[in-house]
């Protein structure tokens, strides 16, 4: 906020000027504020918004919520329960599938395991590409290839997760205490047993914690993948909205809300025990 704007000079001589930062630091900060503000006002002036819609928004939102109530509880056993399970399966299978690629890539990316800069770099390239593409885009691609359904969702979640899990697991591997590794190597152990008995035990808590964290995120994400046809609760949500079945929309949203909260609670508790 104002942490950079404080520069007060005293009127009377003798006393030095009061300045919080060096001139260069202050200029750089001012430039950032200036650029952000300029971009903000330029965007506000040029963005295509019909202000009336904004004034109307509270009324429209209220209207939407009144249409949603009472919720369509009857739809839960018939459609929503199954779709929600599909969503959980997409998230879980996607997370597990991502490990098949994430673990080898994490090993290749860890500089203390693979000493070839080339291999490190190739692994990093794959990890970064996986992370840069949103799971919805992955889903669009896989729906185009495999058609609508759960399969596209699982693959989308898996490919998006590879980068996340791979990067964090590889960082955990790089933080391993190398003394243990040396000790094992000194006994003449094979590379595979060094990996299993020196690296893995130390990186294990971090690995499980990262996987759980990603699984939590994946549950949230797989709930929307259905909007582009990749299976799960999103499909039900999309259909209900297209048919203006607001009570059913409300039921689906509530189901998502509850499941996401429960999963977060579960993950937080399990992670607490892991770390």
């Amino acid at each position: 906020m104002n942490s950079s704007s404080a520069s007060i000079s005293t009127k009377t001589g003798g006393n030095p000027k009061w300045q919080r930062f060096t001139a260069a630091e202050r200029t750089a900060r001012y430039m950032v504020y200036l650029v952000v503000l300029a971009a903000f006002f330029a965007s506000l002036r040029t963005v295509e918004i019909i202000p009336e819609f904004l004034y109307d928004a509270p009324e429209q939102l209220a209207d939407m919520f009144t249409r949603m109530w009472p919720m369509d509880f009857a739809s839960y056993p018939t459609t929503i329960h199954g779709a929600m399970l599909d969503t959980l399966h997409i998230a879980t299978l996607g997370t597990l599938l991502s490990l098949l690629l994430a673990i080898p890539l994490a090993l290749l990316n860890a500089r203390n395991i693979v000493q070839s800069l080339w291999l490190n770099w190739i692994a990093k390239f794959f990890l970064v590409s996986s992370r840069s593409v949103n799971s919805l885009i992955w889903a669009l691609l896989f729906v185009a290839i495999f058609g609508p359904g759960v399969l596209a969702g699982v693959l989308a979640v898996a490919l998006r997760s590879v980068g996340f899990v791979g990067k964090l697991f590889s960082e955990a591997l790089e933080e391993v205490n190398m003394g243990t590794v040396e000790a094992l190597k000194a006994t003449g152990a094979s590379p595979a047993s060094v990996l299993l008995k020196a690296y893995w035990p130390q990186a294990k808590p971090a690995f499980y914690s990262v996987v759980l964290f990603r699984w939590d995120i994946n549950v949230r994400e797989s709930a929307v993948l259905g909007l582009v046809g990749a299976g799960g609760i999103g499909v039900v949500l999309n259909d209900a909205m297209n048919l203006f079945q607001w009570p059913k929309v409300a039921m689906a949203l509530t189901a998502i809300f509850v499941v996401v909260l429960l999963i977060e609670l579960l993950v937080v508790n399990v992670r607490k025990r892991l770390i």
Partner: peptide, 10 residues
Amino acid sequence: TFHPVIIAIL
């Protein structure tokens, strides 16, 4: 709790 895309729908 809600994914941005769901909030966007609303």
